[in-house]
């Protein structure tokens, strides 16, 4: 199963790194929804949405695990107004991860009706995982 899976992934996005059973692929924001729909045909379960602010852009890594494969699809979005389509229609389990990235990085997932804080309280700092703009932008 994993070989045909791998062939399908190569058709989806360009693979730029592998180590062990993990595969990293990169896509453009404009291909995002199409790629997610194709991935939804291969697997129903999403493992995580990891967000990372590298100072220039915000990178979102969508991880899917299945037999013998850890698939990571990376998409970069604008840092000043981070916005991307929600995948909750394809993967209902992703709602929690989108809420987490919303409160930690300020990413707006359009289409997610339940986008509110999940871990932080009223007195906690806002978007703590964002790099501070004072660090010479």
């Amino acid at each position: 199963m994993s070989d045909s899976f791998r062939k399908k992934i190569t058709g989806l996005a360009e693979i730029y790194k592998t180590h062990g059973n993990a595969v990293f692929a990169k896509i453009d924001k404009k291909d995002f929804l199409k790629t997610m729909e194709k991935t939804a045909e291969l697997t129903e379960r999403i493992s995580s949405i990891s967000g990372h602010d590298n100072g220039k852009t915000i990178e979102l890594v969508y991880t899917f695990t299945s037999e013998k494969l850890v698939l990571n699809i990376k998409v970069e979005i604008d840092r000043k107004k981070p916005k991307i389509e929600s995948v909750t229609k394809l993967f209902p389990g992703a709602g929690v991860f989108e809420r987490e990235n919303f409160e930690m990085l300020g990413v707006v997932f359009s289409g997610n009706k339940n986008l509110k804080k999940i871990l932080l309280g009223k007195k906690s700092p806002k978007t703590p995982l964002r790099k501070s703009i004072k660090e010479g932008e």
Binding site: S47, S48, H52, G95, V96
Partner: peptide, 27 residues
């Protein structure tokens, strides 16, 4: 699930931890 990004220093750039209980409880 752990996801790490390094940046050439002795501190990680980003370390993302997704625990099983987070998903199980919330969903």
């Amino acid at each position: 699930f752990y996801y790490a990004v390094s940046n050439g220093t002795d501190k990680p750039e980003r370390l993302r931890i997704r625990t099983p209980s987070f998903v199980n409880i919330a969903n």
